[in-house]
Design a protein around this nucleic acid. Sequence first.
DNA 1: CGACTATACGGAGGATGTCTCCGGTTAGCA
DNA 2: TGCTAACCGGAGACATCCTCCGTATAGTCG
Lengths: 205, 205
Amino acid sequence: MVPVTPAETATADEGVKPLRADAQRNYDKLVAAAREVFAERGAEGSLDEIAKRAGVGPGTLYRHFPTRDDLIDALMRDWSARVLADSEAAVEADLPARETLERWFTDLIKHLTLHRGAAAKLSAAFDDPSSPIYRKCQMLADANERVVGHLTDTHELRDNIESRQVMRLVSGIATVADASGISTEEAAPMLGIVIDGILRDSATS
Amino acid sequence: MVPVTPAETATADEGVKPLRADAQRNYDKLVAAAREVFAERGAEGSLDEIAKRAGVGPGTLYRHFPTRDDLIDALMRDWSARVLADSEAAVEADLPARETLERWFTDLIKHLTLHRGAAAKLSAAFDDPSSPIYRKCQMLADANERVVGHLTDTHELRDNIESRQVMRLVSGIATVADASGISTEEAAPMLGIVIDGILRDSATS
DNA sequence: CGACTATACGGAGGATGTCTCCGGTTAGCA
DNA sequence: TGCTAACCGGAGACATCCTCCGTATAGTCG
């Protein structure tokens, strides 16, 4: 089990005391248990269950993670890096605009549906700076801006397309797909409409 | 307080016994209380609180409405009629395609965000025939099909646009707008993208 | 009108989940 | 080895969902 400290999460790495050995152990066990439970039961899985499965009291869980979102935030550590990588890959592949978008949006939805209920949580936190996962939303928005911005620079998108709105739109698709249990492939037609809606010269089918 | 019986909800009106007078009274009080609580606290408001506010025991609530969605269904009685009317009005206004869609989508979002959390519930029930509000989703889908189908008939949309997908897409926008607390006006750019994505000759801005 | 019965009421209480408080424990250090 | 700040853990207060069943009453029939 790779030790993962809160320090790694913090933006400014200064001033964050290292955890005591036992605290670090429990922290890691909690994150692992949370990953399990959220995978099984979705983002609304029981927190006491997570504590129990980590072999730890509820108090310990709440000390490390005051809110549910703090816990979700913690288990999205490496997630950010993957999102970033995918957005860069999409730009660098240098495919035609349509394919770039198809690829990136598919990735985006994959990341948004990390587990059941995740898409809804991310969507909700998108405009709420006080949310513990707000930072993750910004990551997503930045990654999306990288791809959309690139296509804007090459004049392949209509004028006045804001990446923020595109981000919201795709979040919406992910949320609906997640909530109604339809697969990523089944969501493709919706992505197609959005792509047609932002591409400049989108040949009338 | 206008008496509203479950009979009015049922599709087939045969075989539904009329309620006893006291039962009818409680039914109405529960619907009124639910309307209040859902308006205040959203679709996740406490059911016990609704019972209490109706001056009725929890048992009575659960007898009339086995699930939360049955209750939500009940207080959307006249809602269906309004949705229907708006879709017909949109078609009959006979405006240019873009304006027709702008108008209809705005109405649609208004109906989907009946109260906080409603959009998410409707989105989730869209593909779940066992849900008590599935029927309401079909209403919505039919109304949307009326508008989108009309524009398809007049060849104003791209080929292969399925009204079902459009419906999902707009539900997604409504869900995100609701969850992140952005207003209907702020959602307009997203609707614009969708409209551009389905209109045949959508001039590149 | 009085009695009978199907129907409906209501609230006590079990099950589950969230979150806190504080007496007891232990890691790290001198 | 002993001290202390940091940490643990679980009892329990509180909220919410939902059920069960003894009690009450509306509607009906003689």
